[in-house]
Design a protein around this nucleic acid. Structure first.
Length: 301
DNA sequence: CTTACGGCCTGGGTGC
DNA sequence: TGCACCCAGGCCGTAA
């Protein structure tokens, strides 16, 4: 099972989406959408709705919710309905503001022309992203089920949500129902900082290590936001520029390289179906964590 | 109910 | 030069 990790690419997670949201929040509010152009539409829930309902809408605000970008829209001339454009960048999605005259990059599938001569463009090689227009009343339903934002909760709630779970800690960090916004990169970086093995059951951590993990998650996310996210392959901010946090990764994508704390070679193993990079010395695994979970057999009588 | 896992979507990069 | 395969994250179905 070990060393079986293949290519790593890295997707937009909380820090990347936060960076894009901040960029868009300084560029879009007040702008009106004047035209919509669509390329491939198989990743759109309702292409016709975008085509008919977006023109005439004014962008009121841009927010991040977990890994989602939320563009709040207000009708500008009576033809549009108040709502929110929900954008998930998937693995390779990019949302960039460009002058309308700029060359359209390949794999651009949604172009919203704005009333200032610029365009908001969605480019996505894999089309694993999603764009959905929801009415004001539907927004809560669309976002229901996502856990709290790790930057908005304290240690108490963090421990309460994780402390009694038997699943592996890495699986829980990746589960958007537990916490919203973490992905593979920042889960691994957080576990390394907190010196916790990715395959350890959460319930086994205890309060002290859970608090350490909570603190690590917050520190890692804040640091990554400060460096404008990680660009490994596709991620770009809303101006088209890459982030810089990939240069500060301590474990992610560093298999075989020395741990910056203890010089032990970083290893990779599959946990929760994802490549998980960790230091085998700093992040010791209890033997129980590496064996497949078994249940007591039913005794026939 | 909780957890684990396999499959599906797509296509660039990799390795043969 | 070609080409089969791997893998990413979210989601869903299934099994224990």
């Amino acid at each position: 099972m070990q060393g079986q990790c293949g290519m790593f690419s890295g997707m937009p997670e909380l820090p990347e989406v936060e960076t894009v949201a901040r960029d868009l929040a300084s560029a879009l509010p007040g702008r009106c959408i004047t035209a919509v152009w669509l390329g491939k539409t198989d990743f759109l829930a309702d292409p016709a709705a975008l085509q008919t309902q977006l023109p005439g809408c004014r962008i009121a605000a841009v927010r991040r919710y977990g890994k989602f970008l939320l563009l709040d829209l207000l009708p500008d001339n009576g033809t549009g309905r108040p709502g929110t454009l929900l954008v998930h960048l998937g693995m390779t999605g990019q949302l960039v503001v460009q002058p309308a005259a700029a060359v359209l990059p390949p794999h651009t599938h949604v172009v919203l022309t704005l009333d200032d001569g610029r365009q908001l463009r969605y480019t996505d090689v894999r089309r694993f992203g999603r764009i959905v227009l929801v009415s004001a009343g539907e927004l809560d339903v669309s976002l229901a089920g996502l856990g709290p934002d790790p930057l908005e909760i304290g240690q108490a709630e963090f421990c309460a949500r994780l402390g009694r779970r038997r699943a592996r800690i890495k699986a829980l960090l990746l589960d958007q129902r537990t916490l919203r916004g973490l992905g593979n990169i920042y889960a691994d970086e957080s576990l390394w900082r907190a010196r916790i093995h990715p395959a350890e059951p959460a319930a086994q951590l205890g309060p002290a290590r859970l608090k350490r993990l909570c603190r690590a998650v917050r520190q890692i996310l804040r640091e990554a936001i400060r460096w404008r996210g990680s660009s490994i392959a596709n991620y770009r901010d809303a101006t088209g520029a890459p982030g810089a946090y990939q240069r500060r990764h301590r474990v992610y994508g560093r298999e075989g390289k020395p741990c910056v704390r203890c010089r032990t070679k970083i290893r990779c193993l599959v946990v929760a179906g994802r490549s998980s990079y960790y230091c085998p010395r700093c992040q010791r695994a209890p033997k129980s964590a590496l064996r497949p979970v078994r249940r007591p057999r039913q005794i026939a009588h």
